[in-house]
Structures are given as structure tokens and as C-alpha cells.
Simulated assay, not measured.
Amino acid sequence: MYVAVKGGEKAIDAAHAWLAERRRGAKEVPELSIAQIREQMTLAVNRVMAEGSLFDPDLAALAIKQARGDLIEAVFLIRAYRTTLPRFGYTLLVETAKMDCIRRISATFKDAPGGQVLGPTFDYTHRLLDFKLAAEGSLPDAPKAEPHIGPVPHITEFLNKEDLIQQEPANDKEPRDLTREPLDLPADRALRLQSLTRGDEGFVLGMAYSTQRGYGRNHAFVGELRIGTCAVEMEIPELGFAIEIGEVELTECETVNQFTGSKTEPPQFTRGYGLVFGQTERKAISMALVDRALRWKELGEENVGAPAQDEEFVLYHADNIQATGFLEHIKLPHYVDFQSELELVRKMRAEAMGTMQEAAE
């Protein structure tokens, strides 16, 4: 018979010690430093910062090291730490048009004003293993493009001049802060975008891919993808003006989508939007596609029942920390719950066997 058992504190301490040993790995191999992770695993660091809602490369690198490379666990650590930080206020809107771009491309306009900047990307590599990296030596220096310093206009603004793309309505309403209050539906676009930028990259990517395969009305072009640093400014009441308190690296994507019009809107292009910490372009593009799919109601479109059009389905399942907590809790002790179900099944089985025996007689 199954019985409830009690766990031991010594067993838990031993598990922690074993975890620390596995985290360190073989002693003859040099230990990874936080600086190495921060500088050489930047895309992993960027994902942890984005989904953890905290821009701090050093802390994200520490979380990755502590989590043994499990990025979802690292995101969990960052979010938990984030809750301990005081909130001093909110910054001013970040002016992405003033971004110092290290990468800026458009799939819709070949001769984009300001030029196309390919930047550091895997897009044009052959996806072949580079065994030179295994030699642990530095690669030869190669010429690289310098970041574009100064304002670069958004490409979609040129469609604005011909009134060919939907104008984004001005919204002076202060958006709700998803990091300080739970998600509540129905969500406005600002809250949806917050949820998507914190959402699991794989889930958001899957939702975006589903729209491209026909599960939703979403034929998109990348109007512009830009990556670079933006100044962060904050108003200081004692001073009476705003000062720059730092800068953040961001990835911004605007998609241009076909729109045949509705009862209230003429035929025109519409937008999808994504904005994420760090160089996280796959997430930003995915976010833009899902953002556009979720706008069906405000654009007067038909809901064809696609998963990416279902606000509750997308937003409630995008958060990998919430999903992980609910999923992994089932491996923790459920002895009492199982005992009750075990007894119920035994009782039902006995009754069923008795009925079958009576029928046979």
C-alpha cells in the first residue's frame, strides 16, 4: 500500500551540495567568470534580461551561471531578484528614432534612407561548425562596420506620407505595469506588448509561425528591424528637468501587413510591433507578428479562430515562469492527493468487478 512519507532536511542539503558540484563541473577545467558569460554569451544574456524584465547584463550573466545554463531558471532568478528592488519612478519614453544603430535592415525598401546596416548577424553565415573556435585562440581581426551614430528615421514613416499605412492613434493614458500588477483581460495593446516582450521566446515564435502558415490573417513584411543603443532619461523633480541616467540596447521591429479594409477603415497597410532588450531579433519579429494577429478586433477583422488571435490563450500561456511553476509543481510530493485518488479507484474497481460478476451469474 502507498503511504505518505516525510522528506528529510539532510536529503535536501545533500541535493543542494550535489547541484553545486555539478554546476562547477570538472575541477581541472577553468571556472567560467561572470565577465566571460556577459561578453561571450550575449544572446543568452539578452534573452534572460528580456524575459526577466531587468536590464542588467552582469546580473543576467550571474543568473545563467547559477542556473547551469538553464535560461528559464535564470529568468526565474532575475524576476525573483527584481521584486526586491525599490521603484524610484518611471523614465521618459525612449526615442528609438534616435537609436545609435549597429544593425538596421528593411525587407520592404531596398534604398532605405540612411542605408542598410547588416551588423553582427548569423543571417549570412553558412551554419557550418567553425573548428577554429575549438582551438581557443582569437580569430584574426576583420574589418567591421561602425554603428550609425545619430537619428535614423523610421522607414514606415515614408508610408505615412502617402497615407498608405494606418496611423497609430495617440494614447495619453498611462499604461498598466505588468511587473507590478497581475495580467487582467481584456488587455489593451500596451499591456499585450508588455506580456509578449516578457513571454517565452519559443512560445511567441511558435505563435508567430502559426500565423505565417495560415492560422490567422497575417501576411507580413519586415518594414524595419533595428538594433542599437538608446538613451534613457528620467525627470528629477528636485531639478525640474530630465537627465540621462544611462542607455540600453534594444531590438525594434515594425512589420507591414496587408489589410483589405473594413467597414470603418479603408484599404491600407497596418503594423505589428516588437521591442525587446538586447539583440533579440527573432523574438522582436515574432512579437510583431503576434501583436498584429491580436489586433483583429480593433481593426474590424474577422476572428477565424486561430490560436494567435485568442488573447487569453496567447497571453496566459506565453509566460514561461508561470508555465514552469505550474508544470514542475507536479513532481513535488502529492502523496495525500494520490492516496485519495488511489482509494477512489480501488472502490470504483471493486464496484465494477462486482457488477460484472453479477452479470456473469
Score class of each variant (00 low, 15 high):
R47D: 11
R24F: 11
R180S: 14
Q258Y: 10
G278F: 09
K10A: 08
V222C: 03
F313H: 13
A242M: 03
D200T: 08
E73G: 03
Q194K: 14
L54Y: 08
Q339I: 13
E311A: 10
K161G: 00
L77A: 11
C230K: 05
D70A: 12
L159S: 05
M348P: 01
L205S: 07
I285Q: 06
E254D: 05
L129C: 00
R282A: 09
R38P: 01
F158V: 11
K10Y: 02
T179G: 03
M207P: 04
R226V: 04
E238Y: 01
G246M: 07
L289H: 09
L193I: 07
Q268E: 05
A350E: 15
E252S: 04
C230E: 00
F338S: 11
D188F: 11
D200N: 14
P151W: 06
M49V: 07
I34Y: 01
P307Y: 03
F221T: 06
G69M: 10
T280S: 15
Q40R: 15
D188E: 12
L196Y: 01
L191N: 03
E252D: 06
L342G: 11
R23A: 08
A135C: 12
R292A: 04
N303C: 06
A14S: 14
I227W: 00
L183W: 15
L299E: 01
L193A: 08
Y215V: 08
L183P: 10
E51M: 15
E168Q: 11
A74Q: 05
C253H: 01
H154W: 11
V75S: 00
L71D: 05
Q212F: 08
R79I: 09
I64Q: 10
G89S: 13
M353D: 10
P120W: 07
A112F: 07
R213T: 09
R192K: 15
G246P: 10
I227N: 02
R47I: 02
K110H: 04
D13F: 06
N46P: 00
T280G: 02
A306F: 01
V345I: 14
M356V: 07
T197S: 14
T280M: 05
T125H: 12
I165C: 05
R24Q: 12
R295G: 04
E254Y: 10
M348G: 01
T280Q: 12
S138L: 10
G272I: 00
L71G: 00
P169D: 06
L77H: 08
V75C: 12
F88S: 13
E343G: 13
I236S: 02
T280E: 02
L239S: 01
E341T: 06
G228V: 06
F76S: 06
Q357N: 13
A350G: 03
G216I: 03
K161Q: 11
E311V: 00
K65H: 14
T211H: 11
K6V: 06
G240C: 02
Q339M: 13
T42V: 11
R127C: 09
A80L: 08
V94T: 13
D111H: 12
L239N: 04
V45E: 06
N257Q: 02
E254N: 08
T156N: 08
N171Y: 08
A11Y: 07
V248T: 04
Y124G: 01
I78E: 00
T260V: 13
S138I: 02
G300Q: 08
V117T: 08
L275S: 07
L133R: 08
F55N: 09
R189C: 03
L54A: 06
